[in-house]
């Protein structure tokens, strides 16, 4: 059980070979082995969304993903998507609109918002609410986050 097992991943564009225990989560691997601390450990049970990353381009919970079960997949964390135009637009809109306070949930909000906008470039308020319903924020009351996502969507459509 305690024996580590080999796994190969691509993380933020770089091939990574690791040995991890059977039940280590991708979140623990990212934060504790690779010092990629953008994805946050909030609830560790898939509810809060602070650990959201992408696996082969799809937004997932890093806390509900076992590293060994991600063999051969491409992981992107907030650190690895800084140059993505959608993320740039979202970050700017979050800053301009004051859509964060403590910032703990923000990396997850950005990844989830990017997943939403990459499928729907002109979402309604309700669609943004639904798209981000799995990302809890205890500071902002959500209004400014929703406004920022709508604003980023507008700026991308120009």
């Amino acid at each position: 059980m305690s024996r580590d097992l080999p796994v190969n991943l691509e993380i933020n564009g770089a091939a990574v070979a690791l040995e991890v225990p059977l039940t280590e989560t991708l979140l623990a691997t990212l934060r504790e082995r690779l010092q990629l601390t953008g994805a946050k450990r909030g609830c560790n049970q898939g509810v809060c969304g602070a650990c959201t990353v992408t696996l082969d381009g799809v937004a997932v919970r890093a806390c509900l993903s076992l590293t060994l079960n991600c063999e051969g997949q491409k992981v992107a964390t907030i650190e690895g998507v800084a140059a993505d135009p959608l993320i740039e637009a979202l970050q700017q809109a979050f800053v301009d609109g004051g859509a964060l306070q403590c910032g703990f949930c923000t990396p997850g909000q950005l990844i989830a918002a990017r997943a939403l906008l990459s499928q729907n470039s002109d979402p309604s308020v309700e669609e943004v609410q639904q798209g981000l319903s799995g990302n809890l924020c205890r500071c902002t009351g959500y209004r400014k986050i929703i406004d920022a996502v709508l604003s980023a969507a507008r700026s991308m459509r120009k």
Binding site: M1, L22, T23, T25, N44, Q45, G46, R61, C63, L64, S65, L66, L68, N69
Partner: peptide
């Protein structure tokens, strides 16, 4: 293990400790 959404949450809560997956 299929999607892991439930299984891994249970592992994280130490409710189960699989010997193999």
């Amino acid at each position: 293990i299929s999607g892991g959404a439930t299984l891994v949450a249970m592992i994280n809560a130490r409710l189960i400790e699989p010997a193999a997956l």
